[in-house]
Every structure is written in structure tokens, then in C-alpha cells.
Computed example of a mutant assay.
Amino acid sequence: MAGVLRERALSLLAAANNHGDLTVKISSLNQVKDIILAIEPSFAAELYSYLVELQSSPESSLRKLLIEVIEDIGLRAMEHSPLLMSVLLASLKDGESIVAGQSIISGQKLFCGTLREMALQLHRRGKVERWLEELWMRMLKFKDEVLAIALEPGSVGKRLLALKFLETYVLLFTSDTNDPQKAISEGNRDVFNISWLAGGFPILDPVGLMSEANRMLGILLNLLQTSSVPGTYTVTVVSSAAR
């Protein structure tokens, strides 16, 4: 059955790449996503090298959809998704703001998902698997690239999304008073608490992470003193810094 679905997916990927009708391309890619999410992740991973070829598609709407597909795959089959993260990084520099913006939106969700998975593995086993370490390193590079977008002149919409990412980063690594054990024991994948890392781990050092969050907060505050910051950008900075 997996072999049949794989051949079907390859046929659909060829259509997504080469068909002359954009509607057909989009429909084909959506069907590929459904197949990938339906089969065993290890079998689905064989298709990823073909999937990433779509990042060179001339249609921005297809490139944007590709990022959304990668987000869905990454959140459901994280272990097999490091290859796909390269598409997110490359798409940050896409000439179309809707594509770059979607990369920031999806990357933020994957950043949070990767962080939660690491915290859960550390809590349960006292260490994280090698593939997850690799994925986290890519997520940190992604964070650095998004920071550069927030600080450099460019599309206001893209910069606002980058700023939202920085706000999320600050909130993730700011201590709060929630019960960390309750959140972990219930397997809640929608929240993260820096106090989960109270024991201290080399790859997720809470002191270092909180220090970085403070640095990010300082960057947000410094943006308030930049006269070139648009009005909507300034409002977002104030909202972020006031959290």
C-alpha cells in the first residue's frame, strides 16, 4: 500500500512541478500533503527531496503553499523533517513578501514545537535525540535570520511578522509562575515554561536562554528610538516590550 501511495505522490509532485495550470499545481500539492500525512513518516521522508524542488517554482502562491505543507509535516513528523527546514531558511529571502512572511509564520510554529519536544525529551530521558539537536540548531539559525529581517529596511509587513517572532521568543524564555510539572505530565504541546529546564541542560541552558531573551527585549526597546520605524511597527514594539 505504501508503495502505491508513494507512486501516486510522485505523480502528483510531477504535476505540481510541471503542469501549466496553477490550479492543478495547487491541487496536486495539497493531495501530496494528504498522502504524506497518511503514510508512515519514514516512508514519507523518501518524498521530501522531491518536495523541496517546488521551492524554485515561478508561482509565488505555490511556494507559499509549500511552506504551509512543510509546517504541517514538521509538526506531525518532526523526526524526519530537518531537510525541510532548509526551505524555510531559503524562503526568508524570497522576493515575494507573502512567501517570506509565510516562512516566518510557519517557522515560528515549528520553533515552538521543536522547543517543546526538546523540553519533553529532557524531562523524560535527561537528553535529546541527535536529530532533534540538529533541528534545534537549524531553528536557532532561523531565529538569527528573522532578527536580521526585523532590523533591516524592507517590507513593513515582513518586518512586523519578524517582530512578532521576536516577541514570542522573549515570552518563551521569560520565567512565569505556572506549574511546570502539571503542563509536562498532561503532555500539553501548546505551552512551554522556562522553569521546565530548571535542572540545567547544556543544549537548553535556561540562564543563557533568559539572557538572550533579555537581549531581544533590549532590541525591541531600541527600535522605539528609531525614527524610521513605521507607526504600526512602533505600536507592535510597544505591545511586545510591555508583556
Rank of each mutant, 00 (worst) to 15 (best):
7 E>N: 11
16 A>N: 07
233 Y>G: 15
57 S>H: 15
14 A>M: 06
240 S>Q: 02
121 Q>F: 11
181 Q>T: 07
66 L>R: 04
242 A>N: 11
112 C>S: 11
188 N>V: 06
180 P>R: 04
5 L>G: 01
230 P>I: 01
78 M>V: 02
200 G>S: 11
4 V>Y: 10
218 G>V: 03
175 S>F: 12
220 L>R: 05
70 I>K: 06
185 S>Y: 03
205 D>F: 08
193 N>C: 05
79 E>L: 01
231 G>D: 10
2 A>G: 15
185 S>G: 00
2 A>L: 14
174 T>M: 15
138 R>G: 13
142 F>I: 11
39 I>M: 05
103 S>N: 02
227 S>E: 15
167 E>D: 09
145 E>D: 13
146 V>Q: 15
153 P>H: 07
50 Y>G: 09
78 M>I: 00
124 R>E: 07
10 L>W: 12
58 P>F: 08
125 R>L: 00
46 E>R: 13
109 K>Y: 09
223 L>A: 03
8 R>D: 07
78 M>N: 04
227 S>Y: 13
122 L>C: 05
175 S>W: 14
151 L>Y: 04
230 P>S: 08
101 G>K: 15
167 E>A: 08
95 G>A: 14
21 D>I: 07
225 Q>A: 12
232 T>F: 03
107 G>W: 12
147 L>W: 07
12 L>K: 13
202 P>S: 04
161 L>H: 00
197 L>A: 05
227 S>M: 13
209 L>S: 15
207 V>E: 15
124 R>H: 05
57 S>C: 15
49 S>I: 04
13 L>H: 09
166 L>F: 03
6 R>L: 14
101 G>C: 14
15 A>D: 14
15 A>Q: 14
169 Y>F: 14
77 A>Q: 14
140 L>P: 06
8 R>L: 11
202 P>M: 01
109 K>I: 02
102 Q>M: 08
28 S>W: 02
101 G>R: 12
84 L>Q: 00
209 L>D: 06
79 E>M: 05
243 R>V: 15
221 L>M: 09
122 L>F: 08
224 L>T: 01
2 A>N: 14
33 K>S: 07
53 E>G: 11
174 T>Y: 13
57 S>I: 03
16 A>F: 03
14 A>I: 03
124 R>D: 06
241 A>M: 07
229 V>I: 03
180 P>M: 07
120 L>W: 11
173 F>G: 02
25 K>I: 00
210 M>Q: 14
43 F>T: 09
177 T>F: 01
112 C>M: 10
216 M>D: 05
238 V>P: 04
205 D>L: 07
223 L>W: 00
198 A>M: 03
102 Q>L: 01
10 L>H: 13
60 S>L: 09
207 V>T: 12
213 A>L: 13
151 L>W: 05
218 G>A: 13
86 S>R: 04
158 K>I: 00
211 S>I: 13
120 L>N: 10
176 D>Q: 06
216 M>V: 14
201 F>N: 10
41 P>S: 02
57 S>E: 13
178 N>P: 03
228 S>K: 10
91 S>V: 02
73 I>N: 09
50 Y>H: 13
58 P>V: 01
80 H>G: 01
110 L>K: 09
112 C>R: 11
148 A>P: 01
197 L>S: 04
